[in-house]
Amino acid sequence: MTWFLLVPVALAAGTAVSMQFGVNSQLRAVAGGPVAAAAISFIVGTTALVVLTLALNGGLPSFGDVAGAPWWVWTGGLLGAFYVFASVVLTPRLGAATTVAFILTGQVLASIAIDHFGLFRVAAQEATPPRLLGALLIVAGVFLVQRF
């Protein structure tokens, strides 16, 4: 896909994350707590992804095919579970905008480090001064969102 088609998908994903924070924080109230809400969210998401995989691939992948993968590729689900759990706990306390702002800051700072060092087999991209300035501006934006 070309860049101009990927940007709207990225923006839609960002919108979905913000919506997910609000929806899951309300789910928490009826599910009996943040862990139950995160679990329900993952069950619904897993079901949707299984259906999509079946529709697009005609079947599920063989776990034997991925068994030889590096150990750290299996942590994605744990990282996602932490992310959803944290959003369920933080959103009612901090508000959606502040929660998203702090999470975005963490994402940008970690992403720059991942790119710079080529972690997780991502193609290395130097942490140039303009990229670091962009991260600093996001941190400044977080301060403004949180304070005003």
Rank of each mutant, 00 (worst) to 15 (best):
V100A: 14
A67V: 05
Q125Y: 08
V89K: 04
T46Y: 11
V139F: 13
T91D: 04
G22K: 04
I114R: 02
V108D: 13
V9F: 15
V139Y: 10
T128I: 06
I138N: 05
S62G: 07
S62N: 09
L54H: 04
H116P: 03
G118R: 04
P34T: 05
Q146K: 11
A123F: 05
V7Q: 03
D65G: 09
G106T: 03
T53I: 05
A48T: 04
G141F: 15
G134T: 07
P61G: 04
P70M: 15
D115M: 14
G59K: 01
T98H: 01
S62W: 03
I40D: 03
G22Y: 11
A113M: 12
V66A: 15
V35S: 08
G106D: 02
L49K: 02
I103K: 00
A96V: 12
A48M: 15
L6I: 11
T75D: 06
A36G: 03
S41W: 14
T99A: 15
A69G: 08
P70W: 14
L94N: 00
L5V: 08
V7A: 12
A96Y: 01
Q26K: 11
A123N: 02
Q107H: 14
L136G: 15
A97H: 03
L54M: 13
G80R: 07
L54I: 09
L60P: 07
F102G: 08
V17A: 10
W74L: 14
L94T: 01
R131K: 14
I138G: 11
V122E: 11
G45K: 00
L54K: 02
V122K: 07
V44L: 13
A113Q: 03
G33V: 05
P61N: 02
I40Y: 12
V142Y: 00
S18N: 11
I138Q: 06
I40W: 14
D115W: 07
L109Q: 08
V35C: 02
F120N: 05
F4N: 04
P129Y: 07
V50R: 05
A123T: 06
N57F: 13
V30G: 08
A96K: 01
L144C: 13
T91A: 07
A31I: 03
L109K: 06
A12E: 00
A29L: 12
W74Y: 15
L27S: 08
A36I: 07
G134E: 11
A67M: 11
R28A: 11
W71V: 09
I40P: 05
G141D: 10
G14D: 06
F82S: 14
T128A: 10
G95Q: 08
M1D: 10
G141E: 10
F102S: 01
V51I: 15
L109Y: 11
A110T: 11
V73Q: 10
A48V: 12
W74G: 04
L27Y: 10
F117N: 00
T46L: 14
Q26G: 07
R131C: 09
V142C: 14
W3Y: 12
I114M: 07
P92Y: 05
I114D: 06
W72A: 06
A96L: 13
E126F: 01
A140M: 13
T47Q: 05
T2S: 10
L78E: 08
T128K: 04
P130F: 09
A69C: 06
A86E: 01
G32W: 13
V89W: 08
T98P: 00
V122T: 13
A12C: 14
A39W: 12
G58L: 12
L132F: 12
A124L: 09
V142S: 04
